[in-house]
Design a protein around this nucleic acid. Structure first.
Lengths: 236, 236
DNA sequence: ATTTTTCAGTGCGCTACCGAACATAGCAGG
DNA sequence: CCTGCTATGTTCGGTAGCGCACTGAAAAAT
């Protein structure tokens, strides 16, 4: 994932911890490089590591009987993959796909459980993060029900933009159609419309964001609602 | 809420606790009677009590900018209202509406937090319950995206049937259209179709389930998926 | 008994999105 | 250079659900 803007190779969730707690957590992590397109977990699979993306991001996809699937969450350097572990369950409910290649920190589950035991600040943060994720899931449910493809695409681009730390990232329309749960043709039309409005441009998988403000205006309110809720809850 | 079947005025989540833990929890609860249609919490409102429905059920509704709203969860005697409290947040993310009138147990938040501290079995159960709810939210998101109104209606009726402990319950088509996020006319058509298939019958708010098996066949796979996940995770 | 309200059902034109098939254009490898 | 592959764009007929307006009937209020 190339970066035109200044990258911030730090996980803000970890970064918000008191220095001692943060250092202890980081000491227990290993650095890994996440590869684009890799499926780290399938639904029902046992979770062996939790991940803290630093300059990468992970897509949470809900497959449904009959082949269809839908993205229900995105984890970048503002969060963690592995919420179920906090809840005492080591089974991944979703398919987890690397959406943005790059570095992440990870910790194996037994070590992470010990860490949670000792590190109250971390546990507290992650519980609040879980709350944020739950609310986001509900927001996504409503969004998918009510909003047009173009609005949802704009929302998706903004969410990804935030996690890619760059105005450019790689994504094909076919892949996008999987995330949004629509036909590729639907993405073609919506993306073409956003391009006509000079908000984005793209060719053969190279997506470029030109106008974040304009994109926000075009997107549904769900983007802002999610972001505000995150800021509000994770503030403390 | 009248009941033609034998009612089970017990909260199965509480009931699954070791006898000592269960008794301690129940001792701290007060009995309340939930009134149909009452909105116990609005989004963003502070949660003052958690609820364990015994023979009542609560609808979790996500309102979205512009007036539309969508049901994203249902809490009956298999669960608890107040998951955010477990996560250290006392702000209701959803609108909580009494869907089925009847008795529930409730506990004020400070007492509940003390209970969680002392009652490891309860905490463990509720964390697993939270996991189940998260997965259900994702399932609902996908369901709303891909499934037809008639299938979704069938799913809703089955979920409500499970929590009403009765083949009959009261629900108007206008109310249903709010839950499913469709026009009332859409409900009229879908319900008419299910009635033609002899699966249900209804008049002026009185809904009667005739054929649960048939309804399951007509519903989308989401009903079964949710139920199986609940059984699988809450087993322990 | 009459009026008002509530609930279910119908009709009509419209739009977003669907499935399928096909067309074009950039790019890579032989 | 040509070939094959991949990503994007277009067309066409079909449909689920929409907004709106209206009807009919049962229940509740006066």
């Amino acid at each position: 994932m190339s970066s035109t803007n200044a990258p911030s190779p730090i996980n803000t969730l970890i970064d918000s911890l008191p220095s001692k707690d943060r250092q202890h957590l980081i000491a227990g992590c290993e650095q890994v490089e996440l590869v684009f397109g890799e499926v780290i977990y399938h639904p029902g699979e046992k979770i062996r590591h939790v991940y803290f993306p630093t300059d990468s991001f992970i897509s949470l996809v809900m497959p449904i009987q009959g082949g269809a699937s839908l993205e229900v969450g995105l984890v970048g350097n503002e969060g963690m993959y592995g919420v179920p572990i906090i809840l005492g369950v080591d089974i991944s409910p979703f398919q987890s796909v690397i959406q943005g290649a790059g570095p992440a920190m990870r910790m194996d589950v037994p070590a992470f459980l010990r860490e949670l035991d000792q590190n109250a600040a971390l546990l507290r943060k992650l519980k609040r993060y879980t709350y944020v994720k739950m609310r986001q899931l509900a927001q996504t449910a409503a969004c998918n029900r009510f909003h047009l493809v173009e609005q949802r695409l704009a929302r998706w681009l903004l969410m990804t933009h935030d996690r890619a730390h760059s105005d450019e990232f790689n994504i094909t329309q076919a892949f996008l159609s999987q995330m949004l749960g629509v036909r590729r043709v639907g993405v073609t039309k919506a993306a073409g419309s956003l391009q006509n409005k000079k908000l984005i441009s793209y060719t053969r998988g190279a997506m470029k964001i030109h106008d974040v403000i304009g994109l926000e205006a075009e997107s549904c309110s769900c983007y802002r609602a999610d972001k505000e809720n995150y800021a509000h809850i994770m503030r403390h």
